[in-house]
Simulated scan of single mutants.
Amino acid sequence: MKISTKGRYGLTIMMELAARTGEGPTSLKSIAEKHGLSEHYLEQLIAPLRNAGLVKSIRGAYGGYILSKSAEQITSGDVIRVLEGPISPVDFTDEDDPAKRDLWMRIRDSIAEVLDNTTLQSLVSFKDEGKYDNYMFYI
Protein backbone atom coordinates (compact mmCIF):
# COMPACT_ATOMS: atom_id res chain seq x y z
CA MET A 1 0.00 0.00 0.00
CA LYS A 2 1.41 3.36 -0.98
CA ILE A 3 0.15 6.46 0.81
CA SER A 4 -0.21 9.37 -1.61
CA THR A 5 0.56 13.02 -0.95
CA LYS A 6 -3.09 13.40 0.10
CA GLY A 7 -2.54 11.13 3.08
CA ARG A 8 0.93 12.41 3.91
CA TYR A 9 0.04 16.10 3.72
CA GLY A 10 -3.26 15.50 5.48
CA LEU A 11 -1.38 13.88 8.34
CA THR A 12 0.99 16.87 8.33
CA ILE A 13 -1.98 19.24 8.72
CA MET A 14 -3.43 17.19 11.56
CA MET A 15 -0.09 16.90 13.38
CA GLU A 16 0.39 20.67 13.18
CA LEU A 17 -3.09 21.25 14.59
CA ALA A 18 -2.37 18.74 17.36
CA ALA A 19 0.96 20.38 18.17
CA ARG A 20 -0.72 23.79 18.40
CA THR A 21 -3.64 22.68 20.56
CA GLY A 22 -4.53 25.43 23.01
CA GLU A 23 -2.93 28.16 20.90
CA GLY A 24 -6.11 29.00 19.00
CA PRO A 25 -6.93 28.43 15.35
CA THR A 26 -4.10 27.68 12.93
CA SER A 27 -4.16 28.96 9.37
CA LEU A 28 -3.38 26.70 6.45
CA LYS A 29 -1.07 29.41 5.21
CA SER A 30 1.17 29.04 8.26
CA ILE A 31 1.26 25.25 7.86
CA ALA A 32 2.00 25.56 4.14
CA GLU A 33 4.84 28.02 4.76
CA LYS A 34 6.37 25.96 7.56
CA HIS A 35 6.44 22.77 5.48
CA GLY A 36 6.98 24.25 2.03
CA LEU A 37 3.62 23.00 0.74
CA SER A 38 0.97 24.49 -1.51
CA GLU A 39 -1.69 26.32 0.49
CA HIS A 40 -4.17 25.65 -2.32
CA TYR A 41 -3.52 21.89 -2.05
CA LEU A 42 -3.95 21.96 1.73
CA GLU A 43 -7.30 23.73 1.24
CA GLN A 44 -8.43 20.78 -0.88
CA LEU A 45 -7.39 18.34 1.85
CA ILE A 46 -8.95 20.15 4.79
CA ALA A 47 -12.50 19.96 3.37
CA PRO A 48 -12.87 16.17 3.70
CA LEU A 49 -11.24 16.31 7.14
CA ARG A 50 -13.79 18.93 8.20
CA ASN A 51 -16.67 16.96 6.65
CA ALA A 52 -15.53 13.86 8.56
CA GLY A 53 -15.68 15.83 11.82
CA LEU A 54 -11.95 15.71 12.52
CA VAL A 55 -11.40 19.48 12.36
CA LYS A 56 -13.45 22.63 12.94
CA SER A 57 -13.04 25.86 11.03
CA ILE A 58 -12.99 29.19 12.81
CA ARG A 59 -13.87 32.20 10.70
CA GLY A 60 -12.50 35.71 11.04
CA ALA A 61 -9.27 37.64 10.87
CA TYR A 62 -7.58 35.30 13.33
CA GLY A 63 -9.42 32.23 12.09
CA GLY A 64 -8.13 28.92 10.93
CA TYR A 65 -8.60 25.34 12.01
CA ILE A 66 -8.58 23.40 15.26
CA LEU A 67 -9.02 19.72 16.04
CA SER A 68 -12.62 18.79 16.78
CA LYS A 69 -11.49 16.19 19.35
CA SER A 70 -8.38 15.80 21.44
CA ALA A 71 -5.20 14.59 19.78
CA GLU A 72 -5.45 11.40 21.85
CA GLN A 73 -8.81 10.58 20.26
CA ILE A 74 -7.79 10.95 16.61
CA THR A 75 -5.67 8.24 15.02
CA SER A 76 -3.57 8.29 11.90
CA GLY A 77 -5.99 5.62 10.62
CA ASP A 78 -8.86 8.11 10.89
CA VAL A 79 -6.97 10.62 8.76
CA ILE A 80 -5.70 8.12 6.17
CA ARG A 81 -9.14 6.54 5.67
CA VAL A 82 -10.77 9.95 5.12
CA LEU A 83 -8.19 11.00 2.52
CA GLU A 84 -7.14 7.69 0.95
CA GLY A 85 -10.18 5.47 1.37
CA PRO A 86 -10.19 1.93 2.75
CA ILE A 87 -6.88 0.45 3.82
CA SER A 88 -6.00 -2.46 1.55
CA PRO A 89 -2.72 -3.41 -0.09
CA VAL A 90 -4.51 -5.09 -3.01
CA ASP A 91 -8.05 -5.67 -4.21
CA PHE A 92 -9.02 -9.27 -3.65
CA THR A 93 -12.17 -11.30 -4.14
CA ASP A 94 -13.64 -14.50 -2.75
CA GLU A 95 -12.54 -16.16 -5.98
CA ASP A 96 -8.85 -15.61 -5.14
CA ASP A 97 -6.78 -18.49 -3.87
CA PRO A 98 -7.57 -18.83 -0.14
CA ALA A 99 -3.88 -18.74 0.83
CA LYS A 100 -3.27 -15.51 -1.07
CA ARG A 101 -6.49 -13.98 0.21
CA ASP A 102 -5.44 -14.82 3.78
CA LEU A 103 -2.06 -13.17 3.20
CA TRP A 104 -3.62 -9.97 1.84
CA MET A 105 -6.07 -9.86 4.74
CA ARG A 106 -3.28 -10.28 7.32
CA ILE A 107 -1.24 -7.52 5.67
CA ARG A 108 -4.30 -5.24 5.59
CA ASP A 109 -5.09 -5.97 9.23
CA SER A 110 -1.49 -5.34 10.31
CA ILE A 111 -1.39 -1.97 8.54
CA ALA A 112 -4.76 -1.01 10.00
CA GLU A 113 -3.61 -2.02 13.50
CA VAL A 114 -0.55 0.24 13.34
CA LEU A 115 -2.53 3.17 11.94
CA ASP A 116 -5.39 2.73 14.40
CA ASN A 117 -3.04 2.52 17.39
CA THR A 118 -1.05 5.62 16.45
CA THR A 119 -2.73 8.76 17.75
CA LEU A 120 -1.92 12.29 16.70
CA GLN A 121 -0.72 12.87 20.25
CA SER A 122 1.79 10.04 19.99
CA LEU A 123 3.06 11.42 16.69
CA VAL A 124 3.60 14.96 17.95
CA SER A 125 5.17 13.84 21.22
CA PHE A 126 7.46 11.28 19.56
CA LYS A 127 10.95 11.48 20.87
CA ASP A 128 13.85 9.47 19.56
CA GLU A 129 14.62 7.28 22.53
CA GLY A 130 17.99 6.18 21.23
CA LYS A 131 16.64 3.28 19.21
CA TYR A 132 18.42 4.46 16.09
CA ASP A 133 21.64 5.80 17.51
CA ASN A 134 24.46 6.05 15.05
CA TYR A 135 27.07 3.43 15.61
CA MET A 136 30.56 4.61 16.39
CA PHE A 137 33.33 2.31 15.26
CA TYR A 138 36.85 2.68 16.55
CA ILE A 139 39.86 1.12 14.86
Score class of each variant (00 low, 15 high):
130 G>S: 04
89 P>M: 14
54 L>R: 10
120 L>A: 14
101 R>K: 15
34 K>E: 07
103 L>F: 15
56 K>M: 09
91 D>I: 07
24 G>R: 02
60 G>A: 02
126 F>Q: 02
11 L>P: 04
134 N>D: 15
82 V>S: 11
68 S>T: 05
28 L>G: 02
70 S>N: 10
134 N>R: 14
89 P>S: 09
102 D>Y: 01
128 D>R: 12
39 E>P: 02
137 F>N: 06
136 M>G: 07
10 G>E: 04
42 L>G: 11
69 K>D: 11
78 D>W: 09
136 M>D: 10
128 D>S: 11
43 E>T: 12
9 Y>H: 15
19 A>L: 11
79 V>F: 13
23 E>Y: 12
47 A>N: 09
93 T>K: 13
117 N>D: 09
122 S>G: 08
80 I>D: 04
131 K>I: 13
41 Y>D: 08
100 K>T: 03
115 L>R: 02
31 I>G: 12
129 E>Y: 01
69 K>E: 13
56 K>F: 09
5 T>S: 15
98 P>D: 13
39 E>T: 04
133 D>Y: 08
88 S>C: 09
45 L>K: 12
112 A>T: 07
100 K>Y: 08
113 E>N: 04
69 K>Q: 13
137 F>A: 12
103 L>W: 14
31 I>L: 06
135 Y>G: 14
33 E>N: 11
13 I>M: 02
18 A>Q: 05
39 E>F: 00
98 P>S: 10
76 S>F: 07
6 K>L: 11
112 A>G: 03
28 L>P: 03
108 R>Q: 03
134 N>K: 13
59 R>M: 04
134 N>W: 12
51 N>A: 11
